[in-house]
Simulated assay, not measured.
Amino acid sequence: MTYALCGLRVASELPLPELLPWSGEDRPADIEIIIGDVPGRLEDPLHEGPLLRTARDGTCLYTIAGTASYLVEGGRRVTLQPHPGASAPTVRLFLLGSVFGFLCHQRGLLPLHAGCVEIDGKAVAFAGHSGAGKSTLAAAFLRRGYHILADDITVLDMTAPGGPLVLPSFPRIKLWRDALEGMEIPFRDLERIRPELEKYHLPVTAGFRSTALPLRALYHLKTAKDRRHAGEERLRGAMSMEALVDAVYRRMSAFRMGQRDAVMAALLRLMAVPGARLARLMDIGQVDATVMDIVARHGAGAGLPE
């Protein structure tokens, strides 16, 4: 089976319903995912931790007890060995999460822990830690007719001639039950991301932008305790770099793969993209107002706050 992911052709022995089928030219796969035996150790180790082991050539060995072991090589090949009793959704969750992040770093792409939407033909991304509201914000944009490029991992090609380019990733949004209920989205027929969690995959095939777009702005989401602390603040200089470093998906893993210099060089280039801190109330009733403010700010040539 072959799938599309960030413009790459993925050949996988494991069914990946989260991805769209490959519809491009018939060419060799950019990434292969096979099911097989995975070693317990790596030769010439650079880092050995409880979950992640890396070798000096950048190879990764990632093990989630009770789920699977993943061997990630050269940004092109993943060998996975499911553990006894592991559910397929859980195996895919880590494959299309952390393991995908390792692949991006190996390929010289920059993954951010961010969602991303299209506004006026350009990409606008929203970075933040788990629970910051990235997926809820993406779903609110989708509900208003805007296209989604990414939900949780926004992948940037930092070598594109016109500046950072967002490569569309997954045509789905992962949402907790309370967010789905708050936005009156039916969830009974949706697949859980893990059997034990009340978090679901919301397919967005019709609202997915499958073509790469230039990155126009990057917001860093923060939680505001009350309205006095809500709002936007433009980031520059050291504050901008600090926020960007914090936004890199699987940053410490990349450093342990020997990618520190490559990541920091990419972030220096990313500083050219306008960035702002967006502190917002974690109130589902306010999310549409946030969407309207952002759309107004990025329409008709408007820019980020000074």
Rank of each mutant, 00 (worst) to 15 (best):
M1N: 11
A4K: 04
A4D: 15
C6I: 00
G7R: 06
G7I: 09
V10H: 11
P15L: 03
E18P: 00
L19C: 04
P21V: 01
E25L: 14
R27F: 04
A29W: 10
I31G: 00
I35M: 12
D37Q: 15
P39Q: 10
P39V: 07
G40K: 11
D44S: 13
P45H: 09
P50D: 14
R53I: 04
A55R: 11
C60H: 04
T63I: 11
T63F: 07
I64S: 06
A65G: 13
G66S: 06
G66A: 10
S69P: 04
V72S: 05
V72F: 00
L80V: 14
L80G: 06
P82R: 09
P82Y: 10
P82L: 07
G85E: 09
G85Q: 09
G85L: 07
G85P: 08
S87D: 15
T90A: 08
L93P: 00
L93W: 10
L93C: 04
F94R: 01
L95G: 05
L95E: 02
G97Q: 04
V99Q: 02
V99S: 03
F100L: 14
F100K: 01
F100D: 01
G101L: 05
L103Y: 08
R107G: 04
L110W: 02
A114V: 11
A114S: 07
G115D: 02
G115S: 14
G115Y: 02
G115M: 11
V117F: 05
D120R: 14
K122W: 13
A123T: 03
V124K: 01
F126Q: 11
A127V: 01
A127M: 06
H129C: 07
T136L: 04
L137I: 05
A140W: 00
I148D: 00
I153M: 09
T154Y: 01
V155T: 10
V155F: 04
L156V: 04
L156G: 00
T159C: 03
A160H: 13
A160P: 06
G163Q: 13
G163M: 08
S169W: 03
R172M: 12
I173Q: 05
K174A: 14
W176A: 13
A179I: 01
L180F: 06
E181M: 13
G182R: 09
G182I: 02
G182N: 08
I185D: 04
F187S: 12
E191A: 15
R192E: 08
R194W: 07
E196A: 14
E196V: 10
H201T: 11
R209Y: 14
A212R: 01
L213Y: 00
R216A: 13
H220Q: 12
L221M: 12
D226K: 13
R227F: 07
G231T: 06
G231N: 10
G231Q: 09
L235R: 10
A238W: 14
M239T: 08
M241G: 05
M241L: 15
A243Y: 10
L244H: 07
V245N: 08
D246C: 11
A247W: 06
A247K: 09
M252P: 00
F255C: 08
D261K: 14
V263R: 08
A266P: 00
A266K: 01
L278H: 02
A279M: 02
L281F: 11
M282R: 14
I284C: 02
I284E: 02
Q286Y: 08
T290L: 15
M292G: 10
M292R: 15
D293C: 09
D293I: 06
I294F: 00
A296M: 11
A296N: 14
A300S: 12
G301N: 12
G301D: 12
G301Y: 12
